[in-house]
Simulated scan of single mutants.
Amino acid sequence: MTRALILPILLVLCGALAATGPALRGDTGTAVAYVLVFLVLAGVCSPLIFPRSVGSAEARRRGAADGRPVVYWRPGCAYCMRLRLRLGRRARRLHWVNIWRDPAGAAAVRAVNDGNETVPTVFVADRPHTNPDPRWVREQL
């Protein structure tokens, strides 16, 4: 989990550093704006914005049972964030697997992407789709 929090922590620290200059000059409005922007970026990059991850085996079992897609993702991935944000509340209907927390999930992604951990990789009916369009994923729900 600590690996997933490195980017959000760095963003918070950068925001504090960026806000220090304006705060010392007495420009509190700019300092607050810097802090807020970096906090929002840290929140978007954190694993907290994604639905709770399950293991690869459990996600595949659930996906086979209810027909919902399984999404393999990792924190800090811009394409994963794009998919998550474009899906909105519908994202909770998918089964999410964090490949940094699940070695079997990382292996499944490497198996279908020529040895690369390219995410998001979405499995629909056991067929992999690497970095699919969010509209297409919505249609699969």
Rank of each mutant, 00 (worst) to 15 (best):
M1Y: 09
T2Q: 12
T2Y: 02
T2M: 07
R3Q: 04
R3T: 07
I6L: 15
L7W: 10
L7F: 11
P8G: 02
P8H: 08
P8L: 07
L10P: 01
L10G: 04
L17H: 04
L17F: 14
T20W: 14
G21N: 03
P22L: 10
P22Y: 03
L24S: 06
D27T: 09
T28Y: 14
A31T: 01
A33S: 05
A33Q: 05
Y34E: 13
L36T: 12
L36M: 13
L36I: 14
F38E: 00
L41H: 06
L41C: 12
L41D: 03
L41R: 03
G43S: 04
G43A: 11
V44Q: 10
L48N: 07
F50E: 03
P51M: 04
R52Q: 15
R52P: 01
S53G: 15
S53R: 07
S53W: 06
V54C: 12
S56A: 15
S56Y: 12
A57M: 02
A59K: 02
R60S: 08
R60L: 11
R62H: 08
G63M: 06
A64E: 15
A64Y: 06
R68L: 05
P69F: 06
P69S: 02
W73N: 07
W73F: 15
W73A: 13
R74N: 00
G76P: 00
G76K: 11
A78G: 10
Y79V: 06
C80S: 11
C80E: 05
M81Q: 15
M81F: 00
L83W: 01
L83D: 05
L83A: 04
R86D: 14
G88I: 10
R90L: 13
R90M: 12
R90N: 05
A91M: 03
H95K: 10
H95G: 03
H95T: 04
V97F: 08
N98T: 10
N98A: 13
W100Q: 13
R101K: 12
R101E: 15
R101H: 10
D102M: 08
D102P: 08
D102G: 04
P103W: 08
A104R: 13
A104Q: 13
R110Y: 01
V112I: 09
V112W: 05
D114M: 06
D114W: 09
G115D: 09
T118F: 07
V119F: 07
V119I: 05
P120N: 01
P120H: 00
P120L: 02
T121C: 11
V122D: 03
V122P: 01
A125D: 15
D126C: 08
P128K: 13
T130L: 06
D133T: 09
R135W: 12
W136T: 15
V137N: 02
V137Q: 07
E139N: 06
